[in-house]
């Protein structure tokens, strides 16, 4: 069943990604002030949204684990965090390339960039904590608590582009600002590419979840064999 879901998501996501790449490169016009480099935003912003979606799912699953003590929620939280970290890394790296071309520097210690990096480090700490605990129940419990704490940094990163008016571009999407700040065709492409990357994230999460469940089965068998 899960393989079929992955296949279905792949059949939707991969053609959509390829179609988006074609439209971004060949159909959409250059931005008036930035020229062609603005196209990086079609991956920078959707990658951030995909990462936020993963972190939010991880936080919800962590709460569910603490309430229901079902190990599957912990596995989903772990898979979502790993995939979220990968997408957050895409967000940071694409932002660095854009900054190098537009600002002339790879990294500006702008609060908006800094929060995104802090958020990444906090979730990296989550994975480190998991590695450091051997007992599965203790690991799931402590990691769930940390995931809830870590989500505060996601909320700060989300609000940072409103709280600090710095050289990093402010919010542009009409659903957030309430007014049309960019061309509707460009905005629509941002949404469509967010959908494509979210589909990709879902495929990664399901695949990682399957690996984690197999790993847990192997660990349980090892413990059983050791007990014998």
């Amino acid at each position: 069943m899960r393989s079929k879901i992955v296949l279905a998501l792949g059949l939707v996501g991969v053609p959509l990604l390829l179609r988006n790449l074609y439209v971004i490169l060949f159909n959409l016009p250059d931005e008036m002030e930035q020229g062609p480099v603005y196209r990086i935003f079609y991956y920078h912003l959707p990658a951030f949204f995909a990462a936020t979606l993963c972190y939010t799912t991880a936080m919800v699953c962590s709460i569910l684990y603490l309430v229901k003590k079902n190990a599957r929620y912990d596995a989903i939280a772990m898979a979502c965090t790993e995939v979220g970290l990968a997408f957050a890394a895409v967000n940071l790296i694409t932002g660095m390339f854009w900054g190098r071309i537009s600002w002339g520097i790879w990294w500006a210690w702008d609060p908006r960039l800094t929060w995104a990096l802090i958020c990444w480090l906090v979730y990296f700490g989550y994975l480190m904590l998991r590695k450091a605990i051997d007992d599965p129940t203790e690991r799931a419990k402590n990691a769930s608590v940390l995931s809830i704490f870590a989500y505060v940094s996601v909320a700060i990163t989300w609000k940072a582009i409103e709280w600090w008016r710095t050289q990093h571009p402010g919010p542009v999407l009409s659903i957030r600002t309430g007014e049309q700040r960019i061309d509707p065709a460009m905005e629509q492409m941002l949404y469509v590419n967010t959908l494509a990357l979210a589909t990709l994230a879902a495929i990664f999460v399901i695949t990682r979840l399957r690996q984690e469940e197999v790993q847990r089965e192997i660990d349980a068998l090892r413990r059983y064999a050791h007990a014998l």
């Binding site: 906090v122 870590a150 940094s153």
Partner: peptide, 8 residues
Amino acid sequence: LMYPMLVP
């Protein structure tokens, strides 16, 4: 774990 969380 503590320092990244403390940064704000």
